[in-house]
């Protein structure tokens, strides 16, 4: 279950749909290729393999019902076009940075912009000892926003202490100032990369 929480989903941009599309089209290609090979090597009958690729039998069958064949072709074409275009726009859309709405009651709306909360939390996180650099952004959909924090820790930083301090200071302050009980947060740690070593 823990894999489906808002914070776990905020760990990185979801690629499930992209992977599924690539996998599905790969599967289609594999199936079509194997089927054509099976026909071509005569495993579905020696005479089958000797027939033309555009089989007169199939062409005759299709021209016997022109309205049905054309309607199906046009409908399939329109569906593929719409689906492909929708997916293309989805792929090209950058990952959203939702603002966090604190109060939605009429007349008292209060919204914290994604940039404001990101820079406030970043400044807090970078003040923790052992943290070299921090990057913060709001992610997720506007109904359930989350914070994604990337931390570059210095070499030899005490992980457990940073851990406690993050939750006790940085995130607690963010929750407090936003007046939220829980603030879904995804943290990505990078160890020992912030400092360059001097050549001796």
């Amino acid at each position: 279950m823990s894999d489906r929480t808002v914070s776990a989903r905020a760990l990185s941009r979801p690629y499930g749909a992209e992977r599924s599309l690539a996998f599905g089209i790969g599967l289609l290609g594999l199936a079509a290729g194997v089927l054509a090979l099976v026909v071509g090597f005569g495993w579905l009958g020696t005479y089958r393999a000797g027939r033309p690729v555009v089989d007169p039998l199939a062409v005759d069958w299709l021209s016997a019902q022109p309205v049905l064949a054309r309607s199906v072709a046009v409908a399939a074409g329109v569906l593929l076009f719409a689906g492909g275009l929708w997916f293309l726009l989805r792929c090209l859309r950058p990952e959203g940075r939702p603002d966090i709405r604190l109060d939605t009651s009429v007349g008292r709306e209060l919204t914290v912009t994604a940039g404001a909360i990101a820079s406030a939390v970043r400044a807090d996180a970078e003040s923790v000892e052992g943290v070299g650099r921090a990057r913060v952004r709001a992610v997720g959909d506007p109904d359930s926003p989350a914070l994604r924090i990337e931390l570059w820790l210095r070499e030899g930083a005490d992980l457990l202490r940073i851990w406690q301090q993050l939750d006790a200071d940085v995130l607690a302050r963010a929750r407090e100032s936003l007046e939220r009980e829980v603030l879904p947060t995804a943290i990505r740690l990078e160890l020992g990369a912030a400092q360059r070593r001097r050549v001796r």
């Binding site: 823990s2 929480t5 808002v6 914070s7 776990a8 905020a10 760990l11 851990w163 406690q164 993050l166 939750d167 995130l171 829980v182 603030l183 879904p184 947060t185 995804a186 943290i187 990505r188 740690l189 990078e190 160890l191």
Partner: peptide, 10 residues
């Protein structure tokens, strides 16, 4: 470390 906080490391 707390509810609704998830952490990963590369």
């Amino acid at each position: 470390p707390a509810t609704e906080v998830s952490v990963t490391m590369s």
